[in-house]
Computed example of a mutant assay.
Amino acid sequence: MPVPPLGLYIHLPWCERKCPYCDFNSHELSERPERAYVDTLLRDLDNDLSLAKDRIVDTVFIGGGTPSLFQVSAIDTLLRGIKNSVTLSVDAEITLEANPGSAEADKFIGLKEAGINRLSIGVQSFADAQLNALGRVHDREQALRAIALARQAGFDNFNLDLMHGLPGQSLQGATEDLKQAISTGAPHISWYQLTIEPNTIFYKQTPRLPTEDSLASIQQAGEQRLNRENYAQYEVSAYSKEGFQCRHNRNYWTFGDYLGIGAGAHGKVTSSDGRIVRRAKRRQPADYMAAIDAAFVSSTRVLNNSEVIGEFMLNALRLNEGFSLSLFADRTGLDCATVEPRIASLCERGLLLQQGAHVATTELGRRFLDTVVAEFF
Rank of each mutant, 00 (worst) to 15 (best):
P4V: 04
P4G: 04
Y9Q: 02
E16F: 01
C22M: 08
D23T: 01
F24P: 02
E28V: 01
Y37K: 02
L41G: 05
R43Q: 15
R43Y: 02
L49Q: 05
A52Q: 07
K53I: 08
D54M: 08
I56H: 00
G65Q: 04
L69T: 07
F70T: 02
S73P: 00
T77A: 15
L78D: 08
G81D: 11
G81R: 02
K83P: 04
V86T: 00
D91E: 14
A92D: 12
L96R: 03
P100F: 05
S102T: 14
A103F: 03
D106E: 14
L111C: 06
L119M: 11
S120G: 10
S125K: 04
A127Q: 14
A133W: 02
R136L: 09
E141G: 03
Q142L: 00
L149M: 14
A150R: 00
R151E: 15
L162Q: 09
M163D: 05
H164F: 15
L166P: 04
L166I: 02
P167I: 10
G168Q: 09
G168L: 10
G173Y: 12
D177H: 03
S183R: 06
G185L: 09
P187R: 04
H188V: 11
H188Y: 12
S190H: 05
W191R: 04
I196G: 09
E197P: 04
I201T: 09
R208G: 10
L215P: 07
A216V: 03
G222F: 09
Q224M: 12
R225G: 08
L226F: 03
E229Q: 13
A232V: 08
A232Q: 14
A232W: 06
E235M: 07
S237Q: 10
S240D: 11
K241G: 08
F244A: 12
C246E: 10
H248G: 08
N251Q: 11
N251C: 10
Y252I: 03
Y252L: 07
W253E: 11
Y258S: 09
L259N: 13
A263F: 06
A263N: 07
T270Q: 15
T270R: 14
D273G: 03
G274M: 05
V277M: 12
K281P: 04
R283E: 15
P285D: 14
M289I: 06
M289A: 08
D293I: 00
A295N: 15
V297C: 14
S299Q: 13
T300G: 11
T300C: 14
V302G: 10
E307K: 04
E307F: 10
E307C: 06
M313G: 10
L314S: 11
A316Y: 02
F323R: 01
S324T: 14
S324Q: 10
A329Y: 00
A329H: 04
G333A: 06
D335V: 00
A337L: 12
A337P: 03
R342V: 02
I343Q: 01
G350T: 06
G350R: 03
L352Q: 05
Q355H: 10
G356D: 11
H358C: 12
V359H: 01
T361I: 01
E363W: 05
L364I: 11
R366D: 07
F368A: 13
F368C: 14
V372R: 02
V373Y: 01
